[in-house]
Simulated assay, not measured.
Amino acid sequence: MSVSPNISDQDLTRLLRTGSKDAFRVLFDRYGGRLQYFALSYLKSEHDSEELVQDVFLKLWEKREILDCSGNLRSYIFKVAVNSIYDFIRRKNVEQAFVEFAAGNQAEVDSTWDDVVYNDMVLQIGRLMDKMPEQRRRIFKMSREKGMSNEQIAAELSLSKRTVENQLYRATNFLKENLRHSPMTAILFYYLFC
């Protein structure tokens, strides 16, 4: 069934709720360009704004069955877009902070937001490290924070090199396993400890 481009937003929403791909195309044609222009004004990148528009429309399609037919579809779309822009900028800021950290650039952080995100992730890793057995945590910190070699750690703690290697392996696996559902924290972990 073909959907008229002049269909009202309420009728368009009703058709979307039934899974109409034609209605989805009309929705994209109606709001895609405006949404991209809106996103571009914040993101300052054609590529990023295109990616964001695709993300917004994917979210709309995934939630089509719960769209409110009596609500303002345009407002809802732009609300989803604003939230996506916020998440996108946050993710980009976090990624940039980690890239700079990994490159050894410890210049002043551009904004309080970057500080908050970075500190929150370091705190999350710290909490996980606190759950490790004392010896494992100590070995891990000596290796990653103090930059000591396995041989130096073994000598200082009167352990075999093999024990140190085993503890480091277990510590790294524990952190990876617990951070795998948090991609940004996993990136921080990678740059800090791998």
Rank of each mutant, 00 (worst) to 15 (best):
R91L: 07
R91W: 05
K92F: 03
K92P: 02
N93W: 01
N93S: 10
N93L: 08
N93A: 11
V94R: 00
E95V: 14
E95P: 00
Q96V: 05
E100P: 01
E100Y: 06
A102L: 10
G104V: 04
N105F: 02
N105C: 07
Q106F: 14
Q106I: 10
A107N: 15
D110P: 06
S111L: 06
S111T: 14
D115C: 10
N119Q: 14
D120F: 03
Q124F: 11
Q124N: 11
G126H: 08
G126F: 02
M129Y: 04
M129V: 07
D130G: 04
M132A: 09
M132C: 09
P133T: 06
Q135Y: 00
R136P: 01
R137G: 05
R137C: 12
R138E: 13
R138F: 10
I139S: 01
F140E: 01
M142Q: 11
M142F: 08
M142N: 05
M142K: 09
M142W: 07
S143M: 10
S143I: 01
E145N: 12
K146S: 12
G147A: 08
G147N: 06
M148G: 02
N150I: 02
N150C: 12
E151W: 04
E151M: 10
I153P: 00
I153R: 01
A155E: 15
L157C: 06
S158T: 08
S158K: 13
S160M: 09
K161G: 02
K161E: 10
T163Q: 14
V164D: 02
N166K: 13
Q167M: 12
L168S: 03
L168C: 07
R170F: 09
A171Q: 03
A171F: 05
A171E: 01
A171C: 07
T172N: 14
N173E: 14
F174R: 04
F174T: 03
K176F: 04
K176R: 11
N178W: 03
R180N: 08
R180C: 08
H181T: 14
S182G: 06
S182D: 15
